[in-house]
């Protein structure tokens, strides 16, 4: 099956410095392949190259080397742009247009006219929750409202592939939940979603696959379940009525402990011994069991690990 988005060794150098320009590699040989219908999360800290990648895909910048295709055609082809939507990072539009006029203008660039254009504009503004404000000039809009307008304009042409650069930024918790619901709705309709974020909770809630980018390089890519499918790295045991001297007797098995209420302790146990034995010992000493949970890697742990690896790699190579 044809890919929705495909990049091959995509590379971008920027010239930095004022007098003596030297190249700075913003993106280094990125190769990814996103299947139609996927929700693909593009993760990385600030400056990792996420926006650079999106701009290359929109042909707002030209690659130094490598190539990129959307829906099987080279990026920048006008025919492809008819079929995609794009939300720039911190979108900004025309101060003196109203939300309605902006969307109408963009709709007309796709060739929509008359009642069809009006219908589309009003439907999309409803969908992103812009009500009576749609007749207000955009310079009076808050950041969150602009973000909603930005999402609406990205969807004006019922795109097959939607690129969203930091879609949650500037939104309050209610807005986030609404946008999340909107994205799930698009996914259910088969739209390919490619979005960048540094907020991992969004990715965990939405993505089928993620890529982690650090220092311009791809450091990990895969299904969330793959990336997170590490064996458990320990146990959290919470007990009440525990005598503190018992903790010392348990020895190295207890990695951390903290008294969370009088006589109630949270213990983090290593995998060195099965928890059943410790549990028996603790209960035998008269304590009561409150909870026993396995400890797993979160996406955040995976993310931090990859980013740390990438930066140490950079330090050794530079």
């Amino acid at each position: 099956m044809q890919s929705a988005i495909r990049t091959e060794e995509l590379t971008k150098d920027y010239a930095v410095g004022f007098w003596r320009k030297r190249p700075h590699r913003a993106l280094d040989r990125l190769s990814i392949d996103v299947a139609p219908g996927e929700v693909f999360g593009f993760l990385g800290p600030n400056g990792a190259g996420k926006t650079t990648t999106l701009k290359l895909l929109m042909q707002l910048i030209f690659p130094t080397s490598g190539r990129a295709e959307i829906l099987g055609q080279p990026v920048g082809a006008v025919a492809v742009r008819r079929r995609l939507g794009y939300l720039p990072e911190n979108p900004y539009f025309y101060d003196y247009l109203t939300a309605e006029e902006l969307l109408g203008y963009f709709a007309s660039l796709f060739g929509y006219v008359g009642p069809e254009r009006r219908r589309r504009v009003s439907m999309l503004l409803d969908r992103v929750g812009i009500g009576a404000e749609r007749r207000m000039q955009l310079r009076k809009f808050s950041k969150g409202m602009l973000q909603r307008v930005g999402i609406a304009q990205a969807l004006i042409n019922d795109p097959e592939v939607v690129f969203l650069d930091e879609p949650m930024s500037g939104l309050d918790p209610v807005g986030r939940r609404e946008v999340r619901a909107l994205m799930l709705e698009l996914r259910d309709r088969g739209t390919t979603l490619f979005f960048s974020s540094h907020i991992l909770a969004d990715a965990e809630a939405l993505c089928s696959r993620v890529a982690i980018l650090a220092g311009g390089r791809l450091t990990a890519i895969g299904q969330l379940s793959e990336l997170l499918a590490f064996e458990i790295r320990g146990w959290e045991l919470v007990v009440a009525d525990l005598r503190p001297e018992l903790i010392d007797r348990l020895g190295d098995v207890v990695r951390h402990h903290a008294e969370i209420a009088p006589g109630r302790y949270a213990l983090e146990l290593t995998l060195a011994e099965p928890p059943e034995r410790l549990l028996a010992e603790v209960l035998g000493a008269g304590a009561r069991l409150v909870a026993l949970n396995p400890l797993r890697d979160t996406l955040e742990d995976v993310f931090m690990k990859h980013v740390a690896e990438a930066s140490s790699h950079r330090m050794t190579t530079e």
Binding site: K55, M58, V78, P88, P91, L109, F110
Partner: peptide, 14 residues
């Protein structure tokens, strides 16, 4: 400078 051009150029406009 204000990056409003990003939105337009992603549309089918040369």
């Amino acid at each position: 400078e204000r990056r409003s051009v990003y939105g337009v150029l992603a549309k089918p406009v040369r």
